[in-house]
């Protein structure tokens, strides 16, 4: 057997959910040993493949497990891994398709699908915020034509459940504390990194919208009126203006605003 054919065959067998010991046609290219037959030998690699990938996802998505429960979580991971095996040299990327996949597969999460989806989106945002690049923040000069980029590690998520309250609890060592109860509520969340730690910060809807629009490259003069439209019904013009000012002050203070791509030499 040529090397490429052998490698394709072996990896395909490792990716099968069925153990090689239960598949009489597997491992035909392997020699039996004195203590283990060919299927059992391949079985060692098969168990290792599934254990390593499951463990990697379990480490990255503990809140998802808390939402759907341990048993459903295990089945969900296996279904995901069949559809999305690793296509990266780093396990860090393994969960990158999980939010979109779960959106397409509500049956995998059961009746708590919406909350599970929120948890998955926040947890993947954490993975990204943890180690993507940081750009030098700018002290912005705000005028109508100002354009900005957002920090690459900043993720903005509109959620339907209070999963941000769940995350610190599931990341804490030890399981003696009961997990907080998820509440159905609108949450506008920023996931970002500061001093090499990842933080979650709730935003008001105006700040959230403004940052989204600026991140898309809209000039400030166009982004502000659109963000004002996100003000809660009944807000006064003054309170909306205050919210815009507060959002820009916060973004500047935390260092979320950067020069737009055309202004970055890189």
């Amino acid at each position: 057997m040529q090397l490429l054919e052998l490698q394709r065959t072996m990896l395909a067998e490792l990716r099968q959910p069925t153990a090689p010991e239960d598949n009489p046609t597997s491992a035909a290219y392997l020699r039996p040993g004195r203590r283990l037959n060919a299927h059992e030998r391949l079985g060692i690699y098969h168990r290792s493949y599934w254990a390593r990938l499951r463990q990697s996802l379990a480490e990255d998505f503990p809140a998802l497990r808390a939402v759907v429960g341990r048993r459903r979580f295990a089945a969900l991971l296996d279904a995901y891994l069949i559809d999305h095996p690793s296509h990266s040299w780093t396990l860090r990327d393994l969960g990158q398709h999980l939010p979109a996949w779960l959106e397409q597969h509500p049956e995998q999460a059961g009746r708590r699908w919406r909350a599970a989806l929120d948890a998955t989106r926040v947890e993947w945002a954490y993975v990204e915020a943890y180690d993507v690049a940081a750009l030098p923040p700018i002290v912005a000069d705000f005028h109508a034509n100002s354009r900005f980029a957002l920090q690459p590690h900043l993720r903005l998520l509109a959620l339907s459940f209070s999963v941000d309250e769940l995350l610190p609890a599931v990341h804490r060592d030890g399981r003696s504390q009961p997990l907080p109860r998820l509440r159905r509520e609108r949450v506008w969340l920023a996931v970002h990194r500061a001093d090499d730690l990842v933080y979650y910060r709730r935003l008001d809807p105006i700040a959230f919208t403004l940052l989204q629009l600026l991140g898309r490259g809209l000039p400030l003069g166009q982004a502000v009126p659109e963000a004002c439209a996100a003000a809660p019904r009944g807000s006064s013009p003054q309170s909306t203006a205050d919210a815009i000012h507060a959002a820009l002050a916060l973004a500047t203070q935390i260092g979320w605003l950067c020069s737009p791509p055309e202004a970055n030499p890189a």
């Binding site: 090397l3 052998l6 990896l11 493949y49 390593r52 296509h87 040299w89």
Partner: peptide, 25 residues
């Protein structure tokens, strides 16, 4: 060792057949 094929990664250190083709490659 090897560990990936067609862009799919096993994240394991998989054994090679000890062939001359594998030596060259």
């Amino acid at each position: 060792c090897w560990g990936s094929v067609d862009g799919t990664y096993s994240h394991d250190l998989l054994p090679l057949p000890y062939t001359w083709e594998a030596v060259e490659r």
